[in-house]
């Protein structure tokens, strides 16, 4: 679902599936989302004149303020961060720290895009993984080059090696070997732990995302 194509009414309908009542708030966030997009389409000189449609949701705790915003983000596939404004009044914070909000937003965005790409290459990655597993189970033999047409001992070996490989492949694909133990080397820091956390998990847990992702970005 692409938000550019969603009308405010469609956005409200989508929110209705998760949030009871609060019709006014749903309507206003839907308009705000559409207005942002409209503003982006306006010619640059005029665009600067248009004030963005940021919103204040006023209401007691537990009535859906966060939920509406989070759902809005989800249905528009938008990166979302939640911060307590009051945390910046705490001792130890210095002015520019508010920019960390944007850095966190970007981390979430990178994680989202990365997950999408991972899903997109999943099939291919699985194919490669199968080949690698076959290489692990049955290390390839290196045959010496031979004059054409001759069928020496090594060719027979090569042929039976090929057959075994195909048999193994079939068994692998059918999942018949799933429970068989196999030893592989896993570099200690390569476990993609980001998969474990959903985008909303991270900000709730207050983890230092930058540290978590440390090993996964291209080295500069």
């Amino acid at each position: 679902m692409k938000i550019d194509q969603l009308t405010p009414r469609q956005i409200v309908n989508a929110l209705d599936k998760y949030i009871i009542g609060q019709d006014k708030a749903k309507k206003m966030v839907a308009i705000a989302l559409r207005n942002r997009w409209r503003r982006q389409q306006v010619k640059e000189d005029l665009r600067e004149e248009i004030i963005p449609n940021n919103i204040i949701l006023i209401g007691p705790t537990g009535v859906g303020k966060t939920e509406i915003s989070r759902r809005l983000a989800k249905l528009s596939n938008a990166p979302f961060v939640k911060v307590e404004a009051s945390k910046f009044t705490e001792v130890g914070y210095v002015g520019r720290d508010v920019e960390s909000i944007i850095r966190d937003l970007l981390e979430i965005s990178v994680q989202m895009v990365r997950e999408e790409k991972t899903i997109a290459v999943e099939g291919k990655a699985h194919d490669h993984a199968i080949e690698r597993m076959l290489d692990t189970l049955l290390p390839p033999i290196t045959a010496k080059p031979k004059p054409v047409g001759e069928m020496g001992e090594e060719d027979k070996l090569e042929l039976s090696h090929q057959r075994t490989r195909e048999k193994l492949r079939a068994q692998l694909l059918e999942g018949k070997l799933d429970d068989r133990p196999v030893e592989i080397d896993v570099p200690a820091d390569s476990t993609p732990m980001m998969q474990i956390f959903s985008p909303m998990g991270i900000e709730e847990m207050g983890l230092n995302i930058q540290e978590m992702f440390g090993g996964m970005m291209p080295k500069k």
Partner: peptide, 20 residues
């Protein structure tokens, strides 16, 4: 892609704004 997405569709939820 991630930078563009954060810039164009990012949503920041500023909770407890009343406290500041």
């Amino acid at each position: 892609t991630a930078v563009a997405r954060a810039q164009n569709s990012g949503i920041v939820f500023l909770d407890e704004i009343d406290k500041i």
